[in-house]
Design a protein around this nucleic acid. Structure first.
Lengths: 146, 146
DNA sequence: ATTTCAAGTTGTACTATACAACTAGAACGT
DNA sequence: ACGTTCTAGTTGTATAGTACAACTTGAAAT
């Protein structure tokens, strides 16, 4: 096996390990927020509000799934729905102040975890690793956009 | 923000994206085998058979979860249970021929997907990326061993 | 105006998961 | 040797996240 083939094997294996671990901890990532909720909230923050349909399309989730997630997030007071005056079918979702705070808090705690894990990496390696990951995720294979 | 901090941000973000995608596709990874089943079968192959309890410990799953997964895999004819003659509480799990075949098939198709995704990467980058991932996964933070 | 399309909700079902209660067998301590 | 405690595994029950299908409501198009 060539060095390239063996590297691909390793990448496959390590990505699988990471995926399994992430899956295992996705539910208990934070008492307030599952991985999916966190992602949805993050998207809302980035975009400054969007429709449930946009979330569904962006994350390749069924609209019913998003509907229930959104309902839960609203119940928890993290987001609010604003009826679009232009189109009464549409509800534009926005983070509430509480939602922003919780999101920031989870982001901080995740960031701390990553920082700690990567604490002893030389800067040069961090930069290269980050670039590789971006390149990998941007790659052609994933049918799902980010 | 320093280059190192910004790289850590990127690593966090890209790992989150990867985790979410992996989660989304974990169920429909292969008609025969979910990500978890694949991992369990892989472990069985590596070890040449082991107990359900070992699988549970290794992957930080509840024994009841493993029990049901194992039952499903047995029903599907991919593994078989052999009663340990030394200790009648213990069932040693082994891949069947069919199980080995399916595992090999899924491994091949996953490998092909990774190869395709990484097809245009220079060998040097593949090798470095593989090393970074290994280092990341081997890191101290993960409470769960691999 | 009627048909068709789009956004969202609700009913139903399935999978993966955990925790708790249980069964069966093994090991230990007096 | 016999009861206590430990271990392996199963089963009952509950929850979360997901999808698909049927439905409601509103908008657009012919």
């Amino acid at each position: 096996m060539s060095a390239a083939e063996s590297a691909v094997e390793t990448i496959q294996r390590e990505m699988t390990i990471f995926a399994r671990r992430a899956r295992a901890s996705a539910g208990r990532m934070h008492p307030e927020l599952s991985l999916v909720s966190y992602t949805l909230l993050g998207h809302l923050e980035e975009r400054g509000g969007c429709r449930a349909t946009d979330l569904a399309a962006h994350y390749a989730l069924d609209k019913s799934t998003v509907s229930r997630q959104v309902a839960a997030l609203e119940r928890a007071g993290l987001i609010e729905r604003r009826l679009d005056p232009e189109d009464h079918r549409v509800q534009v979702l926005h983070l509430t102040d509480v939602g922003q705070e919780i999101l920031a808090q989870v982001t901080r705690s995740r960031r701390a975890a990553f920082r700690e894990r990567l604490a002893d990496w030389p800067e040069e390696d961090l930069v290269r690793f980050a670039a590789y990951l971006e390149r990998y995720n941007a790659g052609p294979a994933g049918a799902d956009s980010d």
